[in-house]
Design a binder for these strands. Sequence first.
DNA 1: CACCCTTAGTTAAAACTTCAAGAAATGGCG
DNA 2: CGCCATTTCTTGAAGTTTTAACTAAGGGTG
Lengths: 165, 165
Amino acid sequence: MSTEPAGEPRWLSDEEQYAWQSYLHATTLLEDHLDRQLQRDAGMPHVYYGLLVQLSQAPRRRLRMTELAQNAKITRSRLSHAVARLEKSGWVRREDCPSDKRGQNAVLTDEGLRVLEKAAPGHVAAVRAAIFDRLSPEQVGQLAAICRTVADGLQPQGADLPWLR
Amino acid sequence: MSTEPAGEPRWLSDEEQYAWQSYLHATTLLEDHLDRQLQRDAGMPHVYYGLLVQLSQAPRRRLRMTELAQNAKITRSRLSHAVARLEKSGWVRREDCPSDKRGQNAVLTDEGLRVLEKAAPGHVAAVRAAIFDRLSPEQVGQLAAICRTVADGLQPQGADLPWLR
DNA sequence: CACCCTTAGTTAAAACTTCAAGAAATGGCG
DNA sequence: CGCCATTTCTTGAAGTTTTAACTAAGGGTG
């Protein structure tokens, strides 16, 4: 479907290989760095922090599970487990959806909000130190454009992530 | 040390927030996509594939554990587990280091090489489809420069990754 | 040589993710 | 209404990663 065994594989050029290698190094180092920073300062991994952020920005600090999963770009299964953990920690609470009896809302608790507000400055500082203080404004724009393009090509339609058509 | 609780946190500008959001979406989607692609076509996650690639490019298809971990930007612990699994699959073999009795070499087996060669075309195609076929040559250069800058700022010196000084 | 600090790598346990399967409600459609 | 495909979300098991502790060998230094 996406990777049929073509006759002659088109390998990457030297520039592409270099870019790819650099990308892999940067992203794994950064992900590691932020995971450790948040685990240390907020007691949760980066993805979980991202879920709290999403909830904090949502209308009544609540979001349907599926919508939250879409926003965070993770599977519903992963979200189920994550919310279970966040619930156990007291940062998030589940709530039945009134209009659809199948549905659940994830709700950011007051305590969750406090944890988030406490962790946010340090996290922003870490992101800034790792990225935005090191890139020129032009590069920030370039990065955004590149990422948008890549993400647009990946909005999944198979497996467990059939959002967007 | 890196994230002291400064008096007034400098939040991200709108452009920065947008870039950061785009980055997070693109990288998680891409990582997911490649993990699935390789799990399906090669029976291993992306990181493990990267280990095989590193080994295949090393002098005698072998590398000291620590060096391999450095190249792949992962912890030694993670590598230990990964190699244990790859060994069980028969793609990699461990070997005592002659010059240092503490040391181990990870060696790519013939079978590992075959698996790699079989998976490589499809993987390159996936990477190409997701990134390089969608970006202009200028963007590829920009991406490399940006990633280099970010990675340079993250070469860790704490915890379990004390490489580079 | 004896001591001690460092380096190489492993391990167990806990945490997290993935995968496949499944329960329950919804929404057509005849 | 009755049926069936779809959507929503959860679950258990297997696989992966993290963290901290640990063994063993190197490498000074006195």
